[in-house]
Design a protein around this nucleic acid. Structure first.
Length: 487
RNA sequence: GCCGCUAUCGUCUAGGGGUCAGGACACGUGGUUCUCAGCCACGGGACCGGGGUUCGAAUCCCCGUAGCGGUACCA
């Protein structure tokens, strides 16, 4: 394929939505797959709701996902500017050209009148589209209106016929032109509408493939008509299905986290997010699931995009995240968890020095029960905090045993005499105590778990004690014995 | 209302005129074991409905139905 040029054109009226992120991802994958150019264009024409803060939020999310753009904000490019509001003059020029060439015409109808006509039609249960009053204006009437100082809107003159095109995802699609009204290109305040801006910009930026959300499918004939009126060959179109919430409704705030930043904050890895999003509504055609960005790129085709809308399933995202967490190196793990430990007041300067490897082992030990980054903090807390609090439920579940205080004290004293502090020696010592006291090893194990972690669940106890070290273990065991005596 | 798109396990999907309709997440059972997680094994679970075409349809066609989208001087 000739090097394609694709674009992602978010509107900065909010943070980057996961649905938008997926559209961006598909564009990026397509560009990378075919050695093309990925362009980022900011559609900030909704000045009421757009803000600079949102623009930087979107850029940040894109960076986080690793979807670097070749042209656009920050990097520039030969088709600048990449902010739509800076391209108004050009849009107007295109609109005027269309009028000059007879493809568009001024419309003096007042919005109020049109609104009323539309409502009347609706009340009678009829569909309505612009009645072309101003297309058929007599010359004298037109001159009168112009002289009256009314600033007209510019409408596209939709020709008769039908538009058919082949959507790269959907296949053959066609629309009858009588379904399409003479839509507005330039508002009476001279500002372009969406339809004019996208086409003008896509044309100027030499976009070859428009990969965008499904919701634009019925706008496509308008855009094709515009390209044709401008004497250009329209680009290829590929409409990707929408993302839904678990209730099958369009993904919205009600469904919890919807923006990319939120997922970053919740402790998801960017690789996991990309992998998950990439497989939502697209498939490489086989059974592959865990795929790196490069593998995604190598396998990506527009044909692989499925037709139906896809439900965003957070549980599967969790699974992907766990997969990627498990693939991190010990050092990579420490780097990612450090800020969180720091914030929790659990970071120790020695972790940047001689205790580095120890920390790595702690994180590796708890890894299999972690799904998201913040889980590490709670899982590792017993190893890092000075103090443990006993979970009341764990206490009532496992510590209601006769003479347990004495058993635990003996365990502490026995362990204190262990010379080679490793898993095997610890286990050996503990089982000896259980034998001698004629109790089950499990009784001591549960007690030791609560003594050292405060919780009813933890990784294998011998690994925990080995890693925790003898002094801490003995101290905590003794503390538990005292606690048991007191209660 | 009109126009358009879509339809395989609960979810993401593979496949596609003749298959035991495959995989993953989730779920259930068992194993490992000191708990939980993980891991391993096993299991339940789907082609929206109705007509055609065909020897044969989940697959192709038509009609329904449902969901979604559009129908603006919103994007």
């Amino acid at each position: 394929m000739h090097a394609p040029r694709v674009r992602f054109a978010p509107s900065p009226t909010g943070y980057l939505h996961v649905g938008g992120a997926r559209t961006a991802l598909f564009n990026w994958l397509f560009a990378r797959r075919h050695g093309g150019t990925f362009i980022l264009r900011i559609e900030d024409t909704d000045t009421e709701r757009s803000s600079d803060e949102m623009v930087s939020g979107i850029l940040e999310s894109l960076h986080w996902l690793g979807l670097e753009w070749d042209e656009g904000p920050e990097v520039g490019g030969s088709h600048a500017p990449y902010f739509q509001t800076q391209r108004y003059a050009r849009h107007r020029e295109v609109g005027e050209r269309l009028v000059a060439e007879g493809h568009a015409y001024p419309c003096y109808c007042s919005p109020d009148l049109l609104k009323q006509k539309r409502e009347d039609a609706e009340r009678q249960g009829l569909g309505w589209k612009y009645d072309r009053t101003c297309l058929h204006l007599a010359l004298a009437e037109r001159q009168r209106l112009e002289a009256s100082g009314i600033s007209p809107a510019i409408r596209f003159n939709v020709p008769p016929g039908r538009t058919a095109y082949t959507d790269r995802v959907r296949g053959a699609i066609q629309f009858d032109h009588d379904q399409i009204e003479d839509f507005v290109l330039l508002r009476s305040n001279r500002l372009p509408t969406y339809h004019l801006s996208v086409v003008a910009d896509d044309l100027d930026m030499r976009i070859t493939h428009v990969i965008r959300g499904d919701d634009h499918i019925s706008n496509t004939p308008k855009h094709i008509l515009l390209w044709q009126a401008l004497g250009e060959t329209p680009p290829e179109f590929a409409h990707v299905p929408l993302l839904l919430g678990t209730d099958k409704k369009r993904l919205s705030k009600r469904h919890g986290a919807t923006s990319v930043t939120e997922y970053e904050r919740l402790g998801y890895l960017s690789d996991a997010m990309v992998n998950f999003l990439g497989l939502l509504g697209w498939s490489p055609g086989g059974d592959r699931e865990v795929m790196s960005r490069q593998e995604l790129i190598d396998a990506f085709t527009l044909d692989g995009i499925s037709g139906g809308d896809a439900v965003f399933n957070p549980e599967k995202l969790d699974w992907f995240n766990a997969q990627y967490l498990a693939r991190l190196t010990p050092e990579g793990l420490v780097e990612r968890v450090k800020p969180l430990l720091d914030a929790a007041g659990l970071w120790n300067a020695a972790f940047d020095g001689e205790r580095r490897e120890w920390l790595q082992r702690v994180l590796a030990l708890v890894l299999s029960r972690v799904r998201r980054l913040p889980d590490f903090v709670e899982q590792a807390r017993p190893f890092l905090a000075d103090h443990v609090d006993y979970d009341p439920e764990a206490v009532s579940k496992y510590l209601a045993v006769a003479e347990l205080d004495s058993h635990v004290e003996t365990l502490a004293l026995t362990l204190d005499r262990v010379e080679q502090w490793d898993e095997a020696a610890i286990e050996c010592a503990l089982r000896d105590v259980a034998d001698i006291r004629s109790i089950k090893a499990a009784t001591l194990i549960h007690a030791a778990r609560i003594a050292t972690t405060g919780k009813a669940v933890s990784p294998g106890i011998f690994e925990v004690l080995a890693l925790m070290g003898k002094p801490v273990t003995v101290t905590r065991l003794l503390a538990l014995a005292k606690f048991l005596q007191a209660s």
